[in-house]
Design a protein around this nucleic acid. Structure first.
Lengths: 193, 193
DNA sequence: GGATGCCTTGGTCGTTCGCCCAATTCTGAG
DNA sequence: CTCAGAATTGGGCGAACGACCAAGGCATCC
């Protein structure tokens, strides 16, 4: 029971937690070592003791948090039909208020990933994990072209998160019925081609 | 023909242009007055001569650019069927490479809008304009619940932009067939409820 | 009980930030 | 030709930035 080493690990965890909060609140490139240390309740020098750089800290915090979100979102999908599962996912999404920290963190991380190779690799892995879970679920339910559908659905969910930051009314009751049969007019119209 | 006043207006325009470029390249909160002036080829002091603050400059540049994008995306939609129009929009989206400046600008602006009231109002106006155009188009084509569909479609398009920054393969050929009948399993399955 | 690590503190270094302003250049009106 | 005024320059202000480091705890092992 090495108390000192445990405390060190606690500080590391608190720094990661503070990073996820501050990325959401201020934006990726506006997180500084000093505000980070203050939020975590530690000295400014500890940031560069536990992590090689500020970017490394942010990358680890964001990757970890996004991984958790992706797993939670798809955790209970296995035994549901597409419509049930859709309601489940959108319900989870609605638990967050309009400008919630988690949504902003996702978007901030996506943007930062386009400018940082290490982060990009890490986030692409998480995105592929999410897509794989969705694909498995859709395949088991006989949805056509499950891979493309999973990729599009993942993009739509993130898009809804993004737009909800501007329009809090974009919740499940609005989105759910649309996602069931998006852009499919009544059949008597006679689709072209 | 006041040459000096015209030159002043040109500098203002160049500053706005430089702002849109730098927001995409470095991110909203990483644009500084000095890099901005250097990109525009003018002295650092001119930023605060033509604009009241750096934020005001960025807000004006982003709002103006997003307005243009929204108008262009919906310009030729009027006389198309939903499937034709969808192909048109997605084709426009594909003209940009994976990590194109326009996409990043949109996302950067959305995020910045959650932290700046003035920007938020301006961007909400643009988003509502885009939704209104889509709603009109969908209504004319008999698509059910056109308002909700327009809101969801707008979110999906932005989500695709966001994901394409990480996955350049998420292009029209992948997305288009899915958006036609999203999440609708073959009818012989017997949808619940 | 002294020595050996890990953890933590608090400060310094050089750089860059947004904003401001005195001084200078230039131009169109009288 | 003169001059008022708009446009522009370049430097200065205090503050905050990322990174770094000497110095000091403090628990754990010989």
């Amino acid at each position: 029971m090495t108390t000192t080493a445990q405390r060190g690990e606690q500080v590391r965890t608190r720094l990661l937690q503070a990073a996820t909060e501050l990325i959401s609140e201020r934006g990726w490139s506006a997180v500084s070592t000093r505000t980070l240390a203050q939020r975590a309740g530690v000295g400014p020098g500890l940031v560069h003791y536990h992590f090689t750089s500020l970017q490394a800290l942010l990358t680890e915090a964001a990757t970890q948090t996004l991984h958790t979100i992706a797993e939670e979102a798809t955790a209970h999908l296995a035994q549901t039909t597409p419509h049930e599962g859709l309601a489940l996912i959108l319900g989870d999404l609605d638990r967050y208020p309009g400008d919630d920290p988690a949504s902003r963190l996702v978007t901030e991380t996506y943007l930062a990933a386009t400018r940082d190779q290490d982060l990009r690799r890490a986030i692409t892995d998480v995105l592929n994990l999410l897509r794989r879970h969705l694909t498995t679920w859709l395949t088991a339910n006989g949805v056509p072209s499950p891979q493309a559908t999973a990729a599009t659905l993942a993009a739509t969910l993130d898009g809804v998160m993004l737009h909800r930051a501007l329009d809090p009314d974009l919740t499940a009751p609005t989105v759910e019925p649309v996602l069931r049969r998006l852009l499919t007019p009544d059949d008597h119209q006679g689709a072209p081609r």
